[in-house]
Design a protein around this nucleic acid. Sequence first.
DNA 1: TGGAAACGGACAAGGTCTGTCCGTTTGTTC
DNA 2: GAACAAACGGACAGACCTTGTCCGTTTCCA
Lengths: 197, 197
Amino acid sequence: MNKERPATPQGAAMPVRADAQRNAARVLAAARRAVASTGLDVSYHEIAREAGVGVGTVYRRYPERDQLMAAVLRDILTELISTAHQALGCDDAWEGFSSLFTDLALYTAQNAGLSGSLDQHGGPAVAQQRHELLDLTRQVIERAQDQGRLRRDLPWKEVLRLTGAPATQGCVLGLEPDPAHGHHLALTVLLDGLRTD
Amino acid sequence: MNKERPATPQGAAMPVRADAQRNAARVLAAARRAVASTGLDVSYHEIAREAGVGVGTVYRRYPERDQLMAAVLRDILTELISTAHQALGCDDAWEGFSSLFTDLALYTAQNAGLSGSLDQHGGPAVAQQRHELLDLTRQVIERAQDQGRLRRDLPWKEVLRLTGAPATQGCVLGLEPDPAHGHHLALTVLLDGLRTD
DNA sequence: TGGAAACGGACAAGGTCTGTCCGTTTGTTC
DNA sequence: GAACAAACGGACAGACCTTGTCCGTTTCCA
């Protein structure tokens, strides 16, 4: 999939060996799993073990920790962006919204280990992707609101923040922590959902 | 407050020195803070620093890690039990429920670090306290349901599980993880709360 | 089949955590 | 206020975990 090495044009000099490509995929997948379960501070050895690969291979691929984290983020964001596109393509605005909301919540829950300090990692490319995802979700939310299917008393960013409610804090999205406020809103909604009268 | 040493009867031989008592309180408070922010694996040094005390003092008080964790849990559970009693004393069943729910959620959020594996720590005394808390919350929930103020389509344990929704998982309460199911319910309620039609 | 790229994992260096020990301080008693 | 014991604090040794490198071996491609 993605490689840190110079991409091979057409029939250039360095074709990138098959095993290298295979391992690159394994390492990235393992890193995602490891980061999700353990957090940003997983050891390289742990990732290597998870990938069934030697440590050297991981270090060779990602000499800097930031590069690895950026790759993980890029991978995740790519998935989410695709999900958001699907949601926006959905005829029913509510259905689109709720499925995206569910996916985001699920994702956030699975990646609780990532919480906080994600802005540090991943350069402008990741920032760009995150921006794209934010913009798409804004559209999905506002469309549902425009059609009267979704409460209008919450600005879209607040709705998005609720995404993190079933887990801890929104981590991929890079929302400001603001735990007091956001947390309170989540509670309000939960209570509204529970109340019968 | 609580001491690991033999309690002094009336005018017995060992009156427990004042500074020891002071430090005991400091250490416990520090441990609560440290465990909440860092997790169950905080180092003794970290706790000592937080308490403004030497490591030796912490080790002297709690030679075994389990003893310390049990003390922290006991402290927390005592607070929550008192909250639950207040909720049960509330005239308005919904008000009682929602305030308890809010407190539990707040607590859970603040102690995300405690997540999981709390049953291991703290012996029968903690288990007894936890049982008491569970029983009280069950009463609060069922009272609100009986009065038709709270959805009846959720068994009380599920309602309780939602408590963990704004954070991660219920940790003090020792509910089974069951993330798939509980998580889904939390989402359903959140979505119900958000939907207008 | 030969040569280069990639691999794996042992290993040294550095850091953190545990748990103890003992000289010093603090509280209590008379 | 003096004497004694309890409690304190923090330096320190040892165990454990991580990082990052290095080099003999394996795998791929031409």
